[in-house]
Design a binder for these strands. Structure first.
Lengths: 195, 195, 195, 195
DNA sequence: AATGAATGAGCCTTCATTCAT
DNA sequence: GATGAATGAAGGCTCATTCAT
């Protein structure tokens, strides 16, 4: 059972590496095959087709992030802690899964257009609603500023996301964790109610 | 002379439309040709190859945005006006060039990997430095908070960018201009010095 | 296993036929495909690209000729036998492989310009040196006339080669074997020492 | 009138150079245009189409050679002088028109397959007959050995031709004129009657 | 589960040629 | 005679996918 799992994992590893080096559409099945030593047939056996590999990586990757995020929120005890935890979790996840993060950034558009695009957008909405549910009490208590609902995501995680994009692409050099506190502060300053 | 310009513009229009509908790599030259009525040869005559079309759109598009941004900064009279102008300009540009913006979001990675990737990154850095130069005086006077330099872009325009991404992709519905003030406020709250 | 070999051979057969009918550069992959019933992909699977087919035919074809020539020389017992064997072997090879010979005549320039051109010229030089080595003893014994080394090939096989070219192209009608003795005599008269 | 001639000649010069560097079929009209500074339209005005350029070069080139050859034969006073003059003329022409010679070697097959192929082969035959006519008297007087008619060309000029091919392609280094006497001797030894 | 040869649709690009100026 | 933009057919090649072993 170890071996089988390894083979499947090998394919995924190779796929991510290829996708990030050359781009998803520019990566051929044969390139993945050459990188992991599997056969073409084996790849198709495990993932059905190229989109299957992308979907697998994307879904599992995002899911892992959402779990981590929800866990962090569940552990937070106040609005400020929660908001800052969102930023911290985001950065933490990116830094611990840089390849996966890079992949997900470029895959989003593609996946949305793909066969399971609808389903994934639903998933995303559901997850996002769950997060909003955490915040509602604090919103009602006035610990968070009243803003258009659609804005919270952008205000809280937007800057971290933009910075991480820049870092992953090499445009920015400072490792995100060194900026985590500043980004968390800014997030709180953006959505928190001073009193 | 009108005709020639039109022909070239027609190709660009068709290209952007195709790129946004199907994705850049999934768009074939033939699809562009069919959409604008030009011949294959004509497209190659004007742009050399597919990458040439992408590069043309990307470079001119971004340039236009940077011009607009620098003009807005030049007209700003204080740190707060400037910061808020950056957000407003960004939103304004996206809303007035939604197709171009959509295209640029998806093209960035591709273009960076491409032939002229190096040159474009240099350009970008230069433009960004120019913007930073505007802010330096206010930084020194203490009108802006002291933060790691690499962070300002993400803090000021990050949320607007994230929101616009969501809006352009259909994930968010509210037109960005309706949120412009909130986003501008948040930007100032993130980087402005209260005193 | 028989089938595979056949498939590859079929492609080569079709390729030679097309090359000789229309010229190498004027032959499209599709023409070869249509003639042998293979798929485009299969051709590329076996030979990589069009140049690969040409190279395969050229290398194997020439190699076969050099083997035959060296064998004939090894069996020759005197200078005269050897010189005449060279002419006879040449004619024999052309007559038994007319299509291959026709192809090689037109391919030489192309192949030399190609990727493996360097390697092939080296090969050729090596083979030619080996032939010269056979003759050296007789040269030293004075059974062969002392002439510039670069001249022997042209003097011995040149006329046969020119005639075969003419025959293969239809300019000359008499089958080369009927002229073999005359050509062999001439060769000996050109390089042999009367005493 | 000087200018016009120059322009046409420029095109021809550029064409020969391109043809010899890259091969005739691999040379595009645009490559010729780029090399001589003419416009595409101008080339078509002068030569009709690509084949027209090739034909012009080929016909004029060969014609020039035949004139020189016939003149040399007319001046020869005996069989031996005539045979040796053929070799000398051939070498002389190649050495004075190396680019043209290189071109003609590669163009022959192409031209024969082309539109005017028939006409050119007729021309060639006619010229060849004329040469044979010169030799007939000496053949009848027994100054030349009786051999199959189709063989004389190959025996007399074959070695020189083979050597020149090798020299033009870089395979052989010694300039043909240094070997002219040896080649002429060999030719006479091949077809001349010792008594 | 794994293998890799075979398939063929489709893509980017080139290039000879035309023609209005 | 000269120019060069425009045309579109055709070619080499890639690649996702299938399937017999």
């Amino acid at each position: 059972m170890n071996e089988k799992t390894d083979r499947k994992q090998d394919i995924l590893q190779a796929a991510i590496a290829c996708f990030n080096e050359a781009g998803i559409e520019a990566t051929s099945i044969d390139a993945i095959r050459a990188r992991c030593g599997a056969s073409v047939g084996s790849i198709y056996h495990h993932f059905g087709n190229k989109e299957g590999i992308v979907a697998h990586l994307f879904i599992n990757g995002l899911d892992q992030y959402w779990q981590q995020l929800l866990a962090a929120l569940a552990a937070a005890e106040g609005a400020e802690t929660a908001v800052k935890a969102m930023v911290a979790t985001y950065i933490d996840w990116v830094v611990h899964n840089p390849e996966l993060a890079r992949f997900i950034f470029q895959a989003r558009t593609l996946v949305n257009r793909g066969e399971q695009g609808q389903r994934l957008q639903q998933n995303n909405k559901a997850n996002y609603s769950q997060v909003l549910a955490y915040f509602r009490p604090w919103l009602e208590k006035g610990e968070l500023r009243q803003l258009p609902l659609e804005l919270y995501a952008a205000l809280i995680v937007g800057p971290a996301q933009e910075y991480c994009r820049a870092w992953l692409s090499g445009r920015a050099k400072t490792p995100p964790p060194q900026l985590a506190d500043d980004l968390a502060d800014a997030a709180w300053r953006a959505v928190g109610n001073p009193r």
